[in-house]
Amino acid sequence: MKVLVCISNVPDTTTKITFTNNNTQFNTAGVQFILNPYDEIALARAIELCEGGKGTVTVINVGEASTEPTIRKALAIGADDAVRINIAPSDSYTVASQIAEYAKDKGFDIILTGRESIDYNGAQVAAMVGELLNIPSVSIIKKLDFDGTTATLDREIEGGKEVISLPTPFIASCAEGVAEPKIPNMRGIMSARTKPLAVVEPVAATALTSISSFETPAPRSAVKMVSADEVAKLVDMLHTEARVI
């Protein structure tokens, strides 16, 4: 079995988000980049599915050379090999096009992504790759079982879940519940340095969207404190002043 895991390189979750150039560019100064937390979940499940010689896990990233530490981390966690498509991502469609182009003739049985990237949060790449490859896609799954021919997935829906059964090949985007992220051990870190990381040149793909500017949320007004002895007053304020109940 061959599993492909799409990984993105995103600002650390503690990053205070600011912009430069008249709010047209994300300010990367001093920002630490990490493997997208949801992609860690997808990767962990892929490794579990392939354990004991049942298959191989390839990770793919669309990005410039600066993403290589994140790719090496995925190799240290346990991916067998890696591919980097050498272009800065411009929008989800171009990322999906690059991934689909690479994957189309490689015979991957299962392709996994994270539920969303925590920077641009489109939750778009998985379903776009599915469409481009004309294979089923299931977005935002909480569980993935595979018996060798048929996969059973739990897809999240408002207030519940849908249980879906489907054959390979397919693509799914993973959320919490699918697996526990794995921490690289010493052997993993050592071997990551020598595992294959192929750099592939991109195909032509035109972006369909562009970001013209950014904005940060308006600062909130100062907090109004209510005494612990006057809880009923809070209810009154939420009704008459804030008008939310």
Binding site: I17, Y120, N121, L208, T209, S212, T216, P217
Partner: peptide, 18 residues
């Protein structure tokens, strides 16, 4: 179109060129 990015830490104005 204005949309949320960075998990709600910011907004973007995304231009649809198609």
């Amino acid at each position: 179109v204005k949309n949320t990015v960075f998990s709600g830490k910011a907004f973007a104005f995304t231009q649809l060129d198609s």
